[in-house]
């Protein structure tokens, strides 16, 4: 459905996208994952013919975005980061206008609008001025507008940004339901999002693809390292020092846990189970061992691994909201 070959996009001197290639098959849900400024929005703007590529070819539904933009636009539904809404219009008026400029034939217009309203559940507010809607409703009206002309391809730029948890869950459900009929590309900088909605993930950083695969395969591939989480009582530096001294341990991070406990995250060779040795050493040196368990690398860890430029991971990991 979508073929991107060696796409490069420069804004003057800054290279926002640097030689990206990927394909999306019909019915697939692909997630773009990357920190802010990675080039997700830029890539999507090229896919939707909003911006021309500086280099490389992009074909959507078999049409080149540069040579046949009108054909591409007919087949693509797009919601930018902030849904493009007219605050001074009522929801139905807005959808009617969008249906018209998207080329929905007159006869089908009413039914398609009703259909989109039903799918995105904005029926309650269809006579409300868009300017009075909450963020969640706006996002849904944007989604309704994007699916009005029944596009083959749906491109959603951070569709859950700024929504409350309940709305996020609803939006994800909605997107999942849309996959199958439509080919969906969505972007996010929130990790759990992709593992929940996407069949395949493309991790982008600084305009390049740094990893690609299903959420599971990515987790597997990077499981060259295993993580052991230890909860103990004792002095921080000494504990870190001790864990580092065990053969096979690659890296140790410490943070404070509950009730004065210390949490250690020990990264070790996957080939080697260091749990026994760790437990023995900790007890011998007189630390109070509270718990010790092995944890798989989460997508978050992979993400941080891939997108952190320093070889050493940051000492304080930021919590990513689930």
């Amino acid at each position: 459905m979508i073929e991107v070959e060696n796409l490069t996009k420069r804004y003057g001197r800054t290279t926002a996208v640097d030689g990206i290639s990927f394909k999306v098959e019909k019915g697939e849900i692909l997630g773009f994952l990357g920190p802010n400024g990675a080039g997700k929005t830029t890539t999507m703007r090229v896919l939707t013919c909003y911006l021309p590529p500086t280099n490389g070819t992009v074909r959507v539904a078999g049409y080149d975005v540069f040579d046949k933009p009108i054909e591409v636009k007919r087949r693509v539904g797009y919601i930018p980061e902030t849904p493009p809404l007219y605050p001074d219009m009522e929801v139905t008026t807005y959808l009617d206008f969008v249906a018209k400029i998207k080329g929905v034939p007159r006869k089908e217009r009413t039914s398609r609008i009703a259909d989109a309203i039903a799918k995105t559940r904005v029926g309650d507010v269809q006579r409300t001025l868009i300017g009075r809607l909450s963020k969640g409703y706006r996002q849904r009206v944007g989604l309704a507008a994007a699916i009005l002309h029944n596009p083959d391809v749906l491109i959603l730029d951070e569709p859950t940004a700024g929504l409350d948890p309940k709305q996020i869950i609803e939006t994800r459900e909605l997107i999942k339901n849309l996959g199958g009929d439509h080919t969906v590309v969505l972007s996010t900088h929130i990790l759990p999002e992709v593992s929940m909605t996407c069949g395949r993930v493309l991790i982008i950083n600084k305009g390049r693809v740094v990893a690609e695969g299903t959420p599971e395969s990515l987790t597997h591939r990077l499981q060259g390292a295993a993580i052991v989480q230890i909860e103990l009582r004792g002095e921080r530096d000494a504990a870190v020092e001790l864990a580092r001294s065990i053969p096979g341990v690659k890296e140790v991070q410490a943070r404070s846990g509950e009730a004065g406990a210390l949490l250690l995250e020990v990264e070790a060779d996957a080939a080697r189970d260091v749990r026994e040795e760790l437990a023995r050493a900790i007890v011998q040196k007189g630390f109070g061992l509270l718990s010790l368990r092995r944890a798989g690398l989460s997508l978050e860890d992979i993400f941080l691994h891939l997108t952190t430029t320093d070889a050493d991971a940051p000492s304080e990991k930021t919590e990513v909201p689930a």
Binding site: Y50, R74, P84, Y86, I101
Partner: peptide, 14 residues
Amino acid sequence: RQGTIELLATSPIT
């Protein structure tokens, strides 16, 4: 300002 130019520019109109 509203970003609606992006709607117009990505619709099949010239």
